[in-house]
Design a protein around this nucleic acid. Structure first.
Lengths: 191, 191
DNA sequence: GCTTACAGAATGAATGTTCATTCCAGTATA
DNA sequence: TATACTGGAATGAACATTCATTCTGTAAGC
C-alpha cells in the first residue's frame, strides 16, 4: 500500500466512524483498526486528532464544491440558479450520507464554531456561489433585502434538516419532493 | 438551602456550563462547583449524568411551551397564528440564550437523536401547537401540501440558525427584522 | 543473482490525563 | 443519640499520544 493510499484509508476510516458515532465515539484506536493500520501510524500522517478532523473537513468541502459547481452557470436567471444550487446541494447530501453526517457533526462542534467565526468575520476566503447569488438578487430586487446571514438561514435552514430526516429514514425524498422543497425555500427568499 | 433549592442550583449550574461549553466541556465536578455542592451530592438528586441532562431538557421544553402558549389563541387565522408562534419562539430564544444553546447541544447529540426518533415514530405525546397548525393549514389549503417534517424544516430550519447568529453576535435582530424573518418563513410555507 | 546493511516506516504496549461514579468520614438534623 | 445528608478524595475506565522495538524495501558489495 503506497503512502498516499494509506493516508486515504485513514481519512476514509475517520469519515466513516465519526459520521456514524460522532467525534467522541471515534477513538483513534478504532479509526486505526478500520483503516487497517496501527494506532501509532496515524500520527505519521497527522500531527494529532484535531488536525485529522480539520483536514477531513477541508477535503469534504472541496468535494462538494466541485460536485455542485459542475452544473452551475452564472448567467442563468437568479431563480433558476437558486433552484439548481439547492437541488444540487441537497442531492449531494442524499447521495453521500456519510459526508453529510460528518459535516453536521463538524458544524455543531467547537471545530465548526471556530470555522464559522473565521468565515463570517471574513478571515476565510470563500469561493461561495451563494453569496454572489444573493448579492446579485438583492441588487436586482428579486430577493428580499435581508442581511446575508438571514438569507443563508432561509435557504440552508430547511435543506439541512430535510437531508437529515431523509438520511435517518424519517422521510423519503424523491426528485419531485426535493424540487418542491427547494421551490418553497425560494418562495421564502424571493421578493 | 432546602432540598428543592439545592436541586435547582444543580440544574441551573448544569444549564449554564453545558450551554457554554457543551456536554464534553462540562465535567460533573465543574457543575458541582458552580452549584456550590460536592461532586457526590449531585448523585443524590440524579442517578447519573444522562438523567440530569434529560431532566434538564424536559424542564426547558416545559418552560418554552408555557412561555409560547401564553399568548396563543387557536381561533385566529392560520397565518396570524403562524406569525405569532414564530416570533414568540424566536423571541424566547433571544431572551434566553442559555436555554437556546442548551437545546442546540441536546438536539445535535445522541440524546437528541433518540428523542427525535421517539417523537417522530409517535412514541412520545406531543402537545404540539405547530403540528395542529400545519394540519389545519394543509386541510384548509392555506399551507403547501408537504409532509409534516418538511413543514417543520421550512419553519424551524431558518429560525434556529438566525437565533444562533444573533446569540453569537453575528447579527443583531431587532423586532422588525424578527418579524420580517418569520414572514419570510410564512412565504415558504403558505400556498 | 544473492546476501547484508541500513533508513525510514509501522507497530502497539505503556503512559499520563481526564473524567464519571463510588465511598466513607465527618456534619447536620431529628 | 440515631439517622440522613454532604463533600470531596479515591477508584477505575476510556482515551490520546508516545516511543522502544520490529519490520520492509532498497541498494551496495560480492
Amino acid at each position: 500500500m503506497s503512502k498516499a493510499e494509506k493516508r486515504d484509508e485513514i481519512v476514509r476510516a475517520a469519515l466513516e466512524i465519526i459520521a456514524e458515532h460522532g467525534f467522541h465515539g471515534a477513538p483513534m484506536a478504532m479509526i486505526a483498526e478500520k483503516a487497517g493500520v496501527g494506532a501509532g501510524t496515524i500520527y505519521r500522517y497527522f500531527e494529532n486528532k484535531d488536525v485529522l478532523i480539520n483536514e477531513l473537513y477541508r477535503e469534504l468541502e472541496d468535494r462538494i464544491y466541485a460536485a455542485v459547481l459542475a452544473g452551475y452557470s452564472s448567467d442563468k436567471p437568479i431563480r433558476e440558479r437558486f433552484i439548481y444550487l439547492g437541488t444540487a446541494v441537497l442531492g449531494y447530501f442524499i447521495a453521500n450520507p456519510l459526508d453529510f453526517r460528518y459535516l453536521e457533526q463538524f458544524h455543531n462542534s467547537p471545530y465548526g464554531m471556530a470555522y464559522r467565526r473565521d468565515r463570517i468575520s471574513g478571515k476565510k476566503e470563500d469561493r461561495d456561489m451563494y453569496r454572489e447569488l444573493f448579492e446579485e438578487g438583492v441588487a436586482q430586487q428579486v430577493i428580499k433585502d435581508f442581511p446575508l446571514v438571514v438569507l443563508f438561514a432561509l435557504t440552508f435552514g430547511p435543506i439541512l434538516p430535510v437531508a437529515r430526516d431523509h438520511i435517518l429514514n424519517f422521510i423519503v425524498l424523491d426528485d419531485d419532493l426535493i424540487l418542491r422543497t427547494i421551490e418553497a425555500c425560494w418562495d421564502g427568499v424571493k421578493r
